[in-house]
Design a protein around this nucleic acid. Structure first.
Lengths: 203, 203
DNA sequence: TGGCTTGTTGAAGGTGAATTCAACAAGCGC
DNA sequence: GCGCTTGTTGAATTCACCTTCAACAAGCCA
C-alpha cells in the first residue's frame, strides 16, 4: 500500500504524476490508470482526490505553463544589462533538449488547441504574456540607448516568441541538425538585426 | 448498405474520412468507428481495407502533408517576380482561418512528434523541404538583384518557416487579434528587413 | 484509549471499443 | 446466365477501462 499522505501533498503528487503520464501518452489519450501508476496509487485513490480526471489534467497543464513562465522570469531577475536580458530570455524559451518536459507538454497542448477552447485560451494567454515580457525588455533597452528598434515592440516581441515556439517544436521532434544552440543562434540573428545590438551570446 | 466501390476508390475515401475524423477527435485518439462513420461504412469494412488503423492514419497524414506542400508549390508555379513569389509563399504557409483543415492537422501532429518518431521524421522532412523552397526563392531573387540578403539563405529560410509554423498554431488556437492578415504582415516585416525589398503585399 | 475522519485498496459490475467471422450482395470474366 | 472474386454487413466474442463500493488502515484529538 502507498504511504498515506495529506490532501495537499497528494494533490501536488498527482499533478506531477499527471504531467509524467501525459508526456508518455499525450494529454488527450492519457488514462486514469496511467496517472495512478505514475503516482504509485490505484485508480480509486486518484478518483478520490479528482473525481473527474480532466480536472486533474487541466490543473497539471496550467501548473506546467506557470512553471515555464515563472522560470523564465526568474532567470531574468538578476540581470540589468538589456542585451544580457534579451540573450538569456531567448535561451530560456527553448527546450534544453528533445526531452525537455515543460516544452514537450506545451507542444502537445498546441495540437489540442485546435479542438479544445480551454487549452486554446490558456496557450493564447501564455503567448501574449511572453510577448509582453519581450516588449518590456526591448523598450527598456531602447530607452537606455542599447537598442535601436527597427519596428514597434509588439511586432518584434511577437516574432521573437513565434520563433521560440517554432524551434521548440523542431527540437522536440529531434531535428537532426537544428538543436538548441543552432536555434538560439537563428533567433539571435533576428534579434541582432532588429535591435542593432551585437548581443554577444556569452553575455 | 453503402454503395460498393473499387479498392482504389474506397481507400481514397477512407483517407479523407480519416482526416475528417482526426480533425474532430485528434490523430491520437481517433477511433475505428469514428473513421467508419465519416466514411459511411461499418468498422468491419474499414478493417477490410486497412487491417491496422494506424496504417490508415499514417497514410492520411502523409497525404495531408503532401497536399499542403503541393498546394504551396502550385501557387508559386506561374510567378516570375521574386518579390511576388516571396509574398505569395508567405501567405500560402498560413491557414486561411482557424478552421483550415490542412494546417490544423499539421498542428495536431506537431504535438504527437514528441512521442512518435515516425511523425517526428515526417514533420522534420516537411520543415526542411519548406526551408529549401524559401532558399530557392531568396537566392534566385538575390541573383536577379531584387533582394539583398542580410544573412545566409539557410538562416533566413529557417526563420521564415518557423514564423509561419508558429503563427499557424496561434491562428488555429483562435488568437483574438492575431489572425491571418496580421500574421502575414508580421512575417512580411521580417522578410522586408532581410531582403531589403519593400514586398508590396498586393503583388 | 476509543471513536471519528481521511486516505487507500481490491474486487465487482457496467460500458464501449476492437476484433473476428459467417453470411451475403455486387459486379466481372467466361 | 454461372461461378468466382471482392466488398460489406451484423452479430458474437473478447478485452480494457471506468466506476462504484464495502472494507480497512492511519492518524488525530477528546
Amino acid at each position: 500500500m502507498a504511504t498515506r499522505k495529506s490532501r495537499t501533498e497528494r494533490r501536488a503528487d498527482l499533478i506531477q504524476a499527471a504531467q509524467r503520464a501525459m508526456l508518455r501518452h499525450g494529454p488527450d489519450g492519457v488514462l486514469l490508470n496511467q496517472v495512478a501508476e505514475q503516482a504509485g496509487l490505484t485508480s480509486g485513490a486518484v478518483l478520490y482526490h479528482y473525481p473527474d480526471l480532466s480536472d486533474l489534467l487541466l490543473e497539471a497543464n496550467q501548473a506546467g505553463m506557470e512553471r515555464f513562465y515563472e522560470q523564465r522570469m526568474q532567470r531574468l531577475a538578476g540581470l540589468t544589462d538589456p542585451a544580457a536580458k534579451l540573450v538569456v530570455t531567448i535561451r530560456s524559451g527553448l527546450p534544453v533538449d528533445g526531452e525537455d518536459a515543460d516544452v514537450r507538454l506545451l507542444c502537445e497542448l498546441g495540437g489540442l488547441a485546435g479542438r479544445n477552447r480551454v487549452y486554446a485560451a490558456l496557450l493564447t494567454s501564455l503567448f501574449d504574456r511572453q510577448v509582453s515580457m519581450y516588449q518590456t525588455i526591448l523598450e527598456t533597452g531602447a530607452a537606455q540607448g542599447a537598442f535601436t528598434l527597427t519596428a514597434d515592440s509588439l511586432t518584434l516581441g511577437r516574432n521573437l516568441v513565434a520563433l521560440e515556439d517554432a524551434y521548440g517544436y523542431r527540437i522536440v521532434a529531434r531535428h537532426p541538425t537544428l538543436r538548441t544552440d543552432e536555434a538560439a543562434e537563428l533567433i539571435l540573428s533576428y534579434a541582432r538585426q532588429v535591435t542593432g545590438n551585437p548581443l554577444r551570446a556569452a553575455a
